[in-house]
């Protein structure tokens, strides 16, 4: 117990670490949101991305500002600091609860479609040689909520954490562009009803939803409003149910699937 107390003091009272995070936050916010158009979509660079990337290079081997201790103290602080983000997320969902209830069963059911992520991507990740990283990389489409969950369950400095952060960074950098190209293309195949394309476009990220919904609406001009309405509604449902979907279905299923694919070795 006494020993625990010492360990706890260390990470909760690391003032230098708080100072570094304050400076990274200020730098990130001052650079601000930068967007540029690429093909049919928009690439967004956000303050959090600068803070993340600069933070990664502060260690003893590069900029030498963060010590080994600062780096290990930062890990438990992610789990606690993310709660403010989660509370804010909750307050943005609450006012939209009536629309979500009105949106109907199809909208709710297609949330299970996000598990398509896992079914398609996990075998690819395993074939490429990923092990526990595959869990974090493929259990969801790796937006902020997914970081919070993996941080909570495994820690972001675990293999699972590296997996989710890797896909998160890719998503931030070119998720909107890729979703835009793909959804415009799939919509133009006329295999799916515009309402289905709209629902599929709402993946729980505003920038990806805008790109995917916008491109699909452009590909299906006579149903543009229908596509965009369902894209927005589905995005809302995803942001409301996504957390619970990932915790109660995504992570357990990812673990099970990885065991099956690797014959129980992971």
């Amino acid at each position: 117990m006494a020993e625990n107390e010492v360990v706890e003091r260390q990470f909760t009272h690391n003032w230098k670490l708080y100072g570094i995070v304050l400076v990274l936050t200020i730098i990130g916010e001052l650079i601000g949101v930068r967007s540029f158009r690429v093909g049919p979509g928009t690439a967004l660079l956000l303050p959090m991305l600068y803070a993340l990337v600069i933070g990664m290079f502060l260690g003893p081997r590069f900029i030498k500002i963060a010590s080994e201790r600062d780096m290990s103290d930062a890990s438990p602080l992610i789990v606690l600091s993310v709660l403010i983000l989660v509370a804010k997320l909750g307050t943005t969902i609450g006012p939209n609860i009536p629309q979500l209830i009105g949106a109907g069963p199809a909208l709710l059911m297609q949330e299970f479609g996000n598990l398509g992520t896992l079914i398609l991507a996990m075998p690819v990740a395993v074939l490429l040689g990923f092990k526990r990283e595959a869990i974090g990389a493929t259990f969801s489409n790796a937006r902020e909520g997914a970081l919070a969950i993996i941080g909570d369950v495994y820690g972001l400095d675990s293999p699972e954490g590296r997996g989710v952060l890797g896909v998160y960074i890719c998503g931030t950098l070119f998720g909107a562009i890729y979703n835009g190209i793909m959804s415009g293309f799939v919509a133009s195949l006329n295999v799916f009803h515009p309402m289905a394309i709209g629902m599929a476009s709402g993946v729980g990220s505003a920038s990806m939803m805008s790109a995917a919904g916008g491109a699909a609406a452009a590909a299906l001009p006579e149903s543009a409003d229908l596509v965009l309405t369902f894209a927005a509604a589905s995005n809302l449902v995803t942001s409301a149910t996504g957390l619970y979907m990932m915790i109660f279905i995504g992570i357990p299923l990812a673990n099970f699937y990885l065991r099956v694919l690797t014959g129980g070795r992971e």
Binding site: L17, I20, V21, L22, L24, T25, G28, E29, L46, P47, M48, L49, A51, L52, V53, I54, G55, M56, F57, L58, G59, R61, F62, A66, E68, D70, M71, S72, A74, S75, L77, I78, S81, V82, I84, L85, E144, L147, G151, L156, D157, G161, R162, L165
Partner: peptide, 16 residues
């Protein structure tokens, strides 16, 4: 989101 990812970045530093 920014402070959280700052903590995350610093913590990943050790496994860069």
């Amino acid at each position: 989101t920014t402070p959280v990812l700052a903590f995350a970045g610093i913590s990943i530093g050790k496994d860069l």
